[in-house]
Design a protein around this nucleic acid. Structure first.
Length: 883
DNA sequence: ATCCTCCCCTAC
DNA sequence: TAAGGTAGGGGAGGAT
């Protein structure tokens, strides 16, 4: 029964690794402490010819690695083979299965390679830093056989539906969603995806900057100083309570693309995937699809479709220059169509990294003046400049010139700014200011300006709304002045009518929203979806589940509602779409379910998505689009509060140990009082269990514990079940409850478990419990002592989900051990975590704050995921090794 | 009334 | 060839 700590095993614990990184980081601290606005000084050329792509979470993080590469002559790729330049190395510490098949023959290297190379001031051999030591540099380009090989090469989940079905795949892949590489290929090339994700990122950035702000604005201070020097004309008073600025980059993608192509300035330019303006001459006849599309449009003016012929490119124009707009070219137009009205139109490729960089500079530039920013998208925001104008006493026009000049200087891209008393007026002013201009729609001009304004210029008035308004005979905002609100309501509904009614008069009651709160997370693919059968569709659904989960976990949230969004080929629509691999004319089917538990891992999401999919009874052949949306979101506990939260949930009933600090305070007095009696589980996460069969009365177990001088208040569902309780809880009763817990919270059976009727108990957990509790459980289950003795001789390994992906054969491999440590607690084996905790306690080491937070987060996760067996054994260890 | 689900619409 | 995503506001109509 002895659970003595093994000696000297794995002395390179987490703390040691942390120290390693700290030392390296300290040395290079100045290089990444600055915001990305500042260009890092070139330090060396050691990474000449190296182009890295960072995959997933790494330490140091992607932002830091990016700066390292920039400072030492290397390239940083946002997506594979960016700009036609081959990616030479993938940097990762933890590669989810979903991404393994996407890497081709590019070596996957741990980030220490970068850090160590910089420390050594020379390029070290990356082979020593390979994430997977048996990865071959000479692997041929991704094909079926390689996928098979990869299956053996990388640790993958045997049960994975993906792998099962991959094995049944035919030898040939189209560039469709059945290709394992498809999802990343698609997202790496989707402008709309980029726009969406960047938009969300910058909203988050504003939140973060506001949170971390020390209320110092160096730009503003400098402006105030220079104003007194140069004697700007001061403005006595502002024309409205507030002055709102709307700022928008001019044809953003084009401007970024032209930074390094000055020779193209002044020409009609289009950012598009199409190079030749032509599509496959053997493609399908397009007329049938166009006809059907027109047929399904609402009554009203038709969009321009006459420019589509059988071979012109249907690649969309993401952004076009003002010269192109003069010919009638518009964003979103097909390249082939645009070329017909503008034969000189010059196509330029996307530069996704450039967009990101320029956006970042834009936001950080504004943030030097104020944080009263509402991010709209990567190239557009609203800013309350009232304070800026008051403090610096400059005019709207002076400020506009100043900030536009600064943005041009720092980004190389022009922007336009509009000003007004509210966001609507500011926004309309920007429209007038463009391109590369500024305009202040002053209060006294608003009425005149609005009267003439076409209704389609109002934000929120799009195609469908304008059709309805035109059908009512309404063209301009002025036309609305003669109409009653109720007439409008019949067509447009309550809120929309009020909004348009107000806006037509220049009124906008909505104030700027500085703190953005996410309400949903989704991942949609309506391109390249061509499935022959349900299996293919489900494989894709599984990878999409992982994708949407990774987005959910990035924002540290969990969800209660999942919506499956499908596009189905419309009746009569040709099977082969006009646009290559497009979705064609479709009907949308959405189905959602609100779950009784939190969706917080990819398995949950896939399970529910699969259910919804099956319930919809789709013909897989007709599927043209798939999306998963998660809503009813809730924040997962913040990591820095995680341990505290955990300790509230699981009160450690031990004489003096009640707080986080005391838990790790290893003084002698405490050690003597460590007569651990029982864990007090206060289950606040009623609905977080993965186990749907959880008996609700067993969900909440609260126990009153007598703990030294402290006595805690109790409300227990045990009493509802008629259990006897007093204000003292005896060991026996507590243990009963604990035993009960084991019976009902088991989600998936562990590898080693004992069945007793419908109940099962994990022997490894049992083994970790205090002896007296063990005894009682064993009595209840009629287990003999021999069971545990047997176990004692074998290495302990509880098969929890936490460990499933860890390849045990790697345990002897030091390099891989180090890898695991970097992944955080969730990826450590039980033994490794045990050793880590043990070392902390034995060495009387006070763990680093971040380690404690990480541990707390990990424990909280275990509670929420109902991996209580694992949790109990870990917590128990904390006490045990203190004895 | 108020909520929920399933849409539709709009914006970038 | 081509990369037709994503979040949020809101309405209709049924459930409570």
């Amino acid at each position: 029964m002895s659970r003595k700590p093994r000696k000297n095993e794995e002395d390179n614990g987490f703390a040691a690794w942390g120290g390693y990184m700290e030392a390296k980081k300290a040395k290079l601290a100045e290089q990444f402490s600055k915001v990305t606005v500042e260009l890092t000084n070139k330090k060396s050329d050691i990474f000449n010819g190296i182009a890295i792509l960072v995959n997933g979470y790494t330490k140091p993080g992607a932002d830091e690695l990016k700066i390292f590469m920039a400072a030492h002559g290397g390239n940083y790729h946002l997506y594979q083979n960016q700009g036609g330049c081959p990616t030479t190395h993938i940097i990762a510490t933890n590669l989810p299965n979903v991404k393994i098949n996407q890497l081709g023959n590019i070596p996957v290297v741990r980030p220490e390679w970068i850090v160590d190379s910089i420390s050594a001031n020379k390029l070290l051999d990356f082979k020593k830093y390979l994430l997977y030591t048996n990865q071959s540099r000479t692997q041929p380009k991704l094909n079926f056989t390689v996928i098979e090989k990869d299956k053996n090469t990388f640790p993958t989940n045997e049960k994975s539906e993906v792998n099962k079905i991959l094995a049944e795949q035919p030898q040939k892949y189209a560039k469709t969603a059945t290709d394992p590489q498809f999802l990343s290929d698609f997202y790496n090339n989707s402008r709309l995806h980029l726009i969406s994700t960047l938009g969300a990122e910058f909203k988050q950035l504003v939140n973060k900057l506001r949170e971390e702000s020390n209320s110092e604005f160096p730009g503003l201070e400098k402006l105030i100083r220079s104003k007194t020097e140069t004697g700007f004309n001061s403005e006595k008073s502002l024309k409205s309570d507030k002055i709102i600025m709307h700022i928008d980059m001019d044809c953003f993608f084009v401007s970024v693309g032209l930074r390094n192509r000055p020779e193209l300035r002044g020409k009609p330019i289009a950012v598009t995937h199409s190079k030749s303006g032509k599509s496959n001459p053997n493609g399908p006849n397009r007329q049938a699809e166009v006809d059907l599309y027109v047929k399904r449009l609402p009554e009203g003016p038709l969009p321009k479709l006459n420019l589509i012929d059988e071979t012109s490119s249907m690649a969309e124009i993401a952004s076009c220059s003002y010269e192109a707009r003069q010919c009638g070219v518009r964003n979103g137009m097909f390249m082939g169509s645009a070329l017909k009205i503008c034969p000189n139109l010059v196509p330029i490729p996307y530069d996704f990294e450039g967009y990101k960089d320029v956006s970042s500079v834009l936001y950080h530039t504004i943030a030097e003046y104020t944080l009263d920013i509402e991010a709209v998208s990567c190239d557009e925001m609203y800013v309350d400049v009232t304070k800026i104008l008051k403090k610096s006493s400059i005019t709207v026009s002076e400020w506009a010139s100043h900030i536009r000049h600064e943005i041009m200087e720092r980004t190389g891209c022009p922007c336009s700014t509009g000003f007004g008393a509210n966001r609507l007026q500011a926004r309309l002013a920007t429209k007038k200011a463009k391109p590369n201009g500024q305009y202040y729609l002053e209060p006294e001009d608003v009425d005149n300006y609005m009267y003439e304004l076409p209704l389609e210029d109002l934000p929120g008035v799009g195609y469908a709304t304008i059709v309805k308004l035109h059908n009512l005979g309404l063209k301009t905002c002025g036309d609305l002045y003669d109409i009653s609100l109720s007439t409008l309501k019949n067509e447009l509904g309550q809120k929309n009518s009020e909004m348009i009614y107000d806006q037509a008069r220049g009124i906008d009651k909505k104030s700027l929203n500085y703190e953005h709160e996410r309400k949903s997370v989704s991942a949609d693919v309506n391109y390249g979806i061509r499935f022959k059968n349900h299996s293919e569709a489900l494989v894709f659904l599984e990878s999409l589940s992982k994708e949407v989960y990774s987005r959910l976990s990035e924002i540290k949230m969990k969800a209660k509602t999942i919506t499956l969004k499908l596009l189905i080929r419309a009746e009569g629509a040709p099977k082969e779409t006009a646009k290559y691999l497009g979705c064609g004319v479709c009907d949308a089917i959405n189905k959602s379910i609100t779950t009784s538990y939190y969706l917080e891992n990819p398995q949950h999401i896939f399970k529910e998505a699969k259910n919804l999919y099956e319930r919809l009874g789709i013909v897989p052949d007709d599927l043209r689009g798939v999306g998963i949306q998660l809503s009813k979101l809730e924040k997962i506990s913040r990591t820095n509060k995680a341990l505290a939260k955990f300790l509230n949930q699981v009160s450690i009933v031990e004489s003096n140990i009640t707080t986080r600090n005391e838990l790790f305070d290893n003084n002698d007095e405490n050690r003597q009082n460590n007569n651990v009696k029982i864990l007090n589980i206060e289950n606040k996460n009623k609905n977080t269990g993965v186990n749907n069969n959880l008996n609700s009365t067993d969900e909440t177990i609260k126990q009153e514990i007598k703990s030294g001088s402290k006595q805690e208040k109790v409300t227990s569902t045990a009493s509802k079940r008629g259990r006897s309780r007093g204000n003292k809880t005896t060991l026996t009763k507590s243990t009963s409850n604990l035993t009960n817990y084991f019976k009902h919270t088991k989600n998936e059976p562990s590898t080693k478990e004992f069945k007793s009727g419908n109940n099962s108990i994990d022997l490894n957990v049992l083994k970790e419990l205090p002896k007296d509790i063990q005894k009682e459980i064993m009595e209840e289950y009629n287990l003999s002592e021999k069971v545990l003795d047997k176990l004692e001789s074998k290495p302990s390994s509880v098969a929890t989900n936490v460990e499933k992906n860890v390849d045990t054969k790697d345990n002897k491999n030091n390099e891989n051990k180090e890898v695991k440590k970097k992944k955080g607690f969730a990826a450590l084996t039980k033994e490794e975590l045990k050793t880590l905790l043990k070392n902390w306690i034995r060495n009387q080491e006070i763990p680093k704050e971040k380690d404690i937070d990480m541990l707390g987060a990990f424990f909280t996760k275990l509670v929420e995921e109902r991996k209580l067996e694992y949790l109990f054994s870990m917590v128990n260890l904390l006490y045990r090794y203190r004895l």
